[in-house]
């Protein structure tokens, strides 16, 4: 039995340890948001976060996940509230056919967690492992930048608010 956390909940699987994380997520765990486009690490449609870093779930053996934490596209939103990235992908043309979208969002989320002011080159580097055949990438880059701006606006508001709070408290 392999135990690991998926989207915040501990899950167990009796899959063989060399089964691909992708297959375990999709079939027994029913998390079909993670997609398979190639099965060889090229397309990134299967991207998930493993202990906070983006990986291709088609290249991870589920046995390697024992005790670790996986976040899939289904685990990005906070309940019903979409993340800034998810909202931006809907509004700014980041998703067309949508098959690359789950992986893109995971890769972009990982970027924004380490850098909320990325350059376009940073964005392109962060999603270079996620092939998209629909968009030409421009709208995806724009969506990620829009989300980054939203995150920055929120944190600066929050820090202003907390500063203000601090002042009143003083």
């Amino acid at each position: 039995m392999i135990r690991f956390k998926v989207n915040g909940t501990v899950r167990e699987t009796d899959a063989p340890p060399m089964a691909r994380l992708l297959d375990v997520l999709r079939v027994p765990l029913g998390l079909t948001g993670t997609k398979e486009g190639c099965g060889e690490g090229e397309c990134g449609a299967c991207s998930v976060m493993l202990d906070g870093v983006p990986v291709n779930s088609c290249l991870v053996a589920v046995g390697q996940c024992e005790g670790r934490e996986v976040v899939t596209v289904e685990g990005l939103a906070h309940g019903a509230e979409l993340t800034p990235l998810q909202r931006a992908f809907i509004e700014d043309g980041g998703a067309q056919c949508g098959i690359c979208t789950p992986g893109m969002l995971v890769a972009a989320e990982a970027l924004l967690r380490r850098n909320t002011s990325p350059t376009d080159d940073d964005v392109r580097d962060a999603i270079a492992g996620n092939l998209c055949r629909c968009t030409g990438y421009q709208r995806i880059v724009d969506s990620i930048q829009a989300a980054a701006a939203a995150v920055r606006a929120k944190t600066s508001k929050a820090s202003k608010a907390s500063k203000a709070g601090g002042e009143t408290g003083a």
Binding site: G41, G44, S47, V53, P54, V55, N56, L59, V60, A107, A110, D125, A126, A128, G129, N130
Partner: peptide
């Protein structure tokens, strides 16, 4: 390292 695959390959 930046030229290897892409981020998902580099992390693994």
């Amino acid at each position: 390292a930046k030229d290897v695959g892409a981020v998902q390959i580099q992390t693994r």
